[in-house]
Design a protein around this nucleic acid. Structure first.
Lengths: 255, 255
DNA sequence: CTTGACTCTAACCTTACGTCATACCCTATA
DNA sequence: TATAGGGTATGACGTAAGGTTAGAGTCAAG
């Protein structure tokens, strides 16, 4: 009997000594014996009671309620548990709401940072956006576009700026490389880098074969000169150049 | 400028004056001006900041984190929100576990109180239970039995004891009434009370017509004398008596 | 007899306020 | 002008469930 010192009981039950002191003072778990030096000693009965206490504690019951549950024999545990369950369900609902709010906020934040997704289209006025999106959707499929836009939205502003800058640099470099012809090694290197960046921007989620998709993107450069910015100015020459270089690139990769 | 006193701002934002004092002391929201009497005065800028504070507060952000979010321009809000969302999701998962534990505990508690559902069968040894249940299921349908058992399990120990006691009393009374014959008014009253109790015990969920079900129960009393306990002793005489009385009762009600 | 491990009590710290208590300030009215 | 009433400031205490010292006493082994 009375085998356990505070530390032994604490280790056994996985709580701190402080916790046992506290439970003692608040009457939740009294030691069965105090030595003359006022050391606390607990027996098996106390160990059992501690187990019960910890069970209810794990269910987030306040210690005072645990006291009531364990000490009042007329207490309806079933009702207490059911009430507690209701409270937990309410908490859970609140957390769901919070998570929803955070999601909405994240979308808003990223949209605000990312509304420059328009910048990808380089200067197309906002009122033409809808027409453009419909066009793109009918060309590549609505789902494809939506997936790409989702992916774009997931980038942080810094990442986005970096990728945009890289694309701009490549475009500028390609302008200087026009004289060398679309099949020149330097041009092909630029095209390959463009391919990598665009893959990242579209998240590799494109349903079409990736190279095929990339080729279509090359075509688009010719079909619609809105897509070929050179310092903000459209350039048919650059568009054709990129298209030719892309087709050669794809052909070499597929061959 | 500096339009709002503590109380005005508090009312406007739906917080307490104490909260504003606190936010001031901890540097989260300083008044733009202090009068010479040290009264706090806030301007529009502070109102706006308070709105932001409250937004994050509603998301259960600790105030210190809100401080960081609002004051450190290099702080990555998106990352903070995503981290917070993860934490909330973990909390939610924990609550799910807790609810599951409570459910299991409730079932255990009710089973422990109710495993005496067997007592309904009055002394049938546990190893014969399964055979009996199959028999009952083939007689009345598996679903019927499962529904009835569910209903039985939903009773608290006190309710159950009370109903059991009432049934025992009625049985004892019927024994004394055997000489008067199954159609005697007193006997019929007992049968009617039995009917009511059994209806409660089975929750009225029985698929069969209730009276019809009750009649079958009467038949069963004869078909299997395990169902007719008299102080623990089976009594064929009582079983027949109850069957006759029940059939008369049903006939009268249906007629 | 000393050392190291153990124990006691007490007190302060945490979050985000609520609730006094005491004292000061301001303004409108008699 | 005195005062009543409401607004305000500061400080302190309390909350839940302990964590973290601090100072002092206790126990068993070498």
């Amino acid at each position: 009997m009375d085998n356990y010192s505070v530390k032994k009981l604490a280790k056994l039950a996985g709580v701190s000594v402080r916790t046992l002191h506290l439970y003692d003072k608040m009457g939740l778990l009294k030691p069965s014996v105090r030595t003359e030096a006022r050391y606390r000693l607990y027996g098996e009965k106390e160990l059992l009671r501690l187990q019960q206490i910890l069970f209810y504690r794990e269910l987030d019951f306040p210690l005072k309620d645990i006291c009531t549950v364990l000490d009042d024999p007329a207490f309806d545990i079933v009702q207490a548990l059911e009430g507690h369950k209701t409270a937990l369900a309410a908490k859970k609902e609140r957390i769901n709401t919070l998570i929803g709010t955070i999601d909405k906020t994240l979308v808003t934040l990223k949209n605000n940072a990312m509304l420059q997704v328009e910048d990808l289209y380089e200067g197309i006025p906002r009122e033409k956006m809808d027409a453009y999106r419909e066009e793109a959707m009918s060309k590549w499929g609505k789902d494809t576009i939506l997936e790409v836009e989702d992916t774009l939205r997931s980038f942080s502003k810094q990442e986005m700026d970096s990728l945009k800058q890289q694309l701009n640099d490549l475009t500028a470099r390609l302008v200087t490389l026009i004289p060398k012809g679309p099949e020149h090694e330097d041009v092909q290197q630029c095209i390959e880098q463009r391919y990598g960046i665009i893959l990242r921007l579209t998240g590799g989620k494109i349903a079409l074969g990736k190279l095929e998709y990339f080729r279509k993107l090359g075509e688009l450069y010719v079909a619609d000169n809105r897509y070929t910015p050179v310092n903000g100015m459209p350039s048919m020459e650059l568009a054709v150049f990129i298209k030719d270089a892309t087709e050669y690139y794809v052909k070499r990769k597929q061959g």
